[in-house]
Each structure stands twice: as C-alpha cells, then as structure tokens.
Simulated scan of single mutants.
Amino acid sequence: MGNTADRCDPERRAWIAEAVRVVDADANRSADTHLHVFPLPPSWGVDLYLKDESVHPTGSLKHRLARSLFLYGLANGWIREDTTIIEASSGSTAVSEAYFARLLGLPFVAVMPASTSPEKIALIEFYGGRCHLVDDPSAIYAESHRLARECGGHFMDQFTYAERATDWRGNNNIADSIFEQMRLERYPEPAWVVVGAGTGGTSATIGRYARYRRFATRVAVVDPEGSAFFDAYTRGDRDVTARGSRIEGIGRPRVEPSFLPSVIDRMVRVPDAASIAAMRWAADVTGLAVGGSTGTNLWGAALLISEMRERGERGSVVTLICDGAERYAHTYNSDTWLTTQNIDVDPYLTALRAFQRTGVLTDPTAAP
C-alpha cells in the first residue's frame, strides 16, 4: 500500500471550524452598510453616493478586509489556537484585526509608524492588541517578519494578501453590495466607482467584479501626495518608491503586491490640502463626520462629476466613507496640526463650495 503520512489533528480541525463559525457569526450579526445620497442638484443629471463603511463594528472599511484575512489564514491552516497575529498597519486594519483576534482569543501585535494617530492606537489597545511603534515607516515589513519569527506567530501581511483573500466574484463583498444597493436608483449602473488604495484590495475587488459581471462601470483610484501608486501607474513601473502619505489608510511608499493596475481605469493624484478640505466640506454638506481618506475620495468624485457635466454625460458616481473623523481629532481636524504641517485648506474649500453651486471643480493652484 506504500507509505502514508496523516497530519490530521481532530482537535485542531475542530478549533478551526469553531473559529470560522465565530468570524462568520460576526458578519451575520451586522446589517449591510448604508448608501447615502450626496446632495447635488437633480438637474445636473449626475448623482453621487457615499457607501458608508464607517458603520462596521470596528468603524472602518478595513473590517471587511480583516474578516477576509482571518478566514483566509484559518482556511490555509496558518492561524491556530495558539497563534500570535502580527500585522503591519497604519491603523484601521490593525484596529479591525485586533477585534477579530480578541473574538478568537488570540494575541495581536500591530507594527505601526510612530506617527500613527493616538486615537487609532487607543482603539487597538481597547481591543486587546499591542502596538509596536517604529520610527521609519518603511521598516514595518521587516519588523513584522522579525516579530513573527521570534514568537512563532503569523504575519497577516495585508499588503500581499488583500487582493486574494476576498472573493471578488460576489459573496457579499463590497462590490456586490454596491451594485445591489444601486439597483433601484436613477442610474443603477455607476459610471464610476472612486476608491483610494492602501493595500489595493478594494480597487482590485471592484475592478474584477465589474469585469466579471460585464458592467461598463469604471474604477478610479485616488492617490494622496507622497504615495508611489500614481507614478507607478502612469509610468508602468512597479519599482517606484516615494516618501509615504500623510493621509492615513491610503497611499504607500512602495507599490504593494495587492495593487493591480490592470483593473484600474484611471488614477488621480490628490493634494493633502484637497483631501482635508473635502473631509470638512462633507461634514458641512451632509452632517457626516468623515476621515481624511474619504476626503480624498470626494475630491476625486467631484473632479469626475465636473468632467461628466462638461461632456454632457449623465450617470452615477459611487465612492466610500472609509472611516469617521473621530480618529483624527488631533490631526486633520486640528487647525494647529494643519499649521505645523503647512497645509492651507481654504483655497480647496472655496473650490468645493463653488463646485456645489456650479458643477465645475477648478484647481486652485492652477495659473489663471
């Protein structure tokens, strides 16, 4: 009969089965996230929607990613009953992973830049995680690998696995949710979906899903100052590096493995001042207190709407509320912080208010 090797451990398989049930039960307890209508004149013929990912249990879009990464790790046998979970994160992914680690009774360590907002650090610690801060943001990968080796833990590595851990064909992923919620709207098939890229997982999921379902919807990725993604996309060069972004959750100093340019239709570079101005503008117009990456999304969405109106096009644009403003009380919502960073949001606020009246978005830095 030949040699055989049986690695089946009934107790370990039973623990994994229970862990998957616990993670799935968390999703089952949560309703889908809201799709808000952004107030624009109906006569424009262009409608804007905000998919509110801030209402997840851990307050951000990254809740979906963390759930997928845990299920991926469990199904692959990488996460066991005694595994320490390690993640390299600027904040929101770590908050969500700390939540799921606590659900499963597992230790969690977030390797983060020392500049991460104190609000996010407090949230990770609230969920039982430990924050390991590094001065050099580019060192978080090597430090994560080192910690995982030393403790025999599992480095989740969101920047590698984000695009493959999520089932992009459907299964209530974010793309499936958007298109289902748009079904009864005036223009149910969006002309554009606008997202930022941190890992690249969200843009990969939406871009793949649109192609798979044969939608004409295009994906625009907005990229903040200091990120490598925009230059990599325009040059066709994945070896581009940059200093890194001040807008937490999006933008990277290097091109991450999960970033897939082939499923993106357009990229827009957004100044930090525009991101923060749009974040504040959203609160004024909608009453929704949103974070900085949502501001980046909104500036990109306004630009696309302005262009659509110039061409006489009708249709809908969808973008995301990634997280709430409460995480940035000491940074983007602080005028003192803006002064120390030499960021002037007033010209961009003026441009956005003019856009709301006219449907035309102008670059306040452009020569007259």
Rank of each mutant, 00 (worst) to 15 (best):
85 I>A: 02
89 S>E: 00
90 S>A: 11
96 S>T: 04
96 S>D: 08
99 Y>W: 12
100 F>L: 08
100 F>P: 00
103 L>F: 05
104 L>S: 01
112 M>D: 05
114 A>Q: 12
115 S>L: 12
118 P>K: 14
121 I>D: 00
123 L>F: 02
123 L>K: 08
124 I>D: 08
125 E>C: 07
126 F>Q: 11
127 Y>C: 02
128 G>W: 03
130 R>W: 06
130 R>V: 11
134 V>K: 02
138 S>Y: 05
141 Y>D: 11
142 A>W: 09
143 E>G: 08
143 E>M: 07
144 S>L: 08
150 E>D: 15
152 G>N: 05
152 G>W: 03
153 G>C: 06
153 G>K: 03
153 G>V: 07
154 H>S: 03
154 H>W: 14
157 D>T: 00
158 Q>F: 09
160 T>R: 15
162 A>S: 12
163 E>D: 14
165 A>V: 10
166 T>S: 01
169 R>H: 11
170 G>L: 10
172 N>E: 14
175 A>F: 12
176 D>S: 11
177 S>H: 13
178 I>Q: 13
178 I>E: 07
181 Q>M: 12
182 M>H: 11
184 L>D: 15
184 L>I: 10
185 E>R: 15
186 R>D: 04
187 Y>V: 07
187 Y>A: 08
190 P>T: 04
191 A>D: 12
